[in-house]
């Protein structure tokens, strides 16, 4: 895998863009967690799907836009012997890592906010007063958010590399 510095400077994955990725993924998870806590039981099952959808779309456009600027540099790396697989792997790991940090941060913030706002009865469920379903909902939400972020990153990178 290429070093982080080459990825950031050479492939234009600038810090500002990485920060934006971090903020977007954490906001999606934060809002989804709060939404999950404030909705009635039947509607809760739609929240992970929403988180998945938003994560795919936001990551796809963020990654694609970021890599469009590094068109020439990707070409240089290919000419020097970087395989398609190596570029895909390097970018995917770096982008997913940022998304992962953002998602976990957003998730933790969301749960903290749920407790501070005393969103009931969901918090009771989390504390074990109700059923296991609250924990399962949260687990499903986290998985959907991470999966959406990974799929969006993959599609964005694939699109950017594939068009060259």
């Amino acid at each position: 895998m290429l070093p982080m510095e080459i990825v950031i400077r050479g492939l234009h994955m600038e810090r500002s863009q990485l920060r934006l990725g971090l903020v977007i993924s954490s906001m999606i998870m934060l809002n989804s967690t709060l939404l999950l806590g404030s909705m009635s039981a039947p509607a809760r099952s739609a929240v992970p799907a929403l988180a998945f959808g938003f994560s795919v779309i936001s990551q796809y456009f963020l990654v694609k836009q970021s890599l469009e600027r590094s068109d020439k540099n990707i070409q240089v790396l290919k000419e020097l012997g970087a395989s398609h697989g190596l570029l895909l792997q390097t970018l995917l790991v770096n982008v997913v890592l940022v998304g992962l940090i953002g998602s976990v941060a957003g998730f933790v913030l969301g749960i903290s906010a749920m407790f501070s706002l005393q969103i009931m009865p969901f918090t009771n469920g989390l504390l074990g007063a109700s059923t296991l379903s609250a924990q399962l909902h949260l687990l499903f939400l986290a998985t959907s958010g991470l999966a959406g972020m990974s799929v969006g990153s993959f599609l964005g990178i694939k699109q950017a590399l594939g068009s060259r």
């Binding site: 290429l2 400077r9 050479g10 234009h12 790396l77």
Partner: peptide, 26 residues
């Protein structure tokens, strides 16, 4: 070792980093 007609360096990297790239990829 290839020196193309149009220079294919990565302008954001340093001289040493550009020269190092083929070794890094190998």
């Amino acid at each position: 070792g290839i020196v193309p007609q149009t220079q294919n360096l990565i302008p954001e990297l340093t001289i040493a980093q550009n020269i190092e790239l083929p070794l890094l990829l190998q």
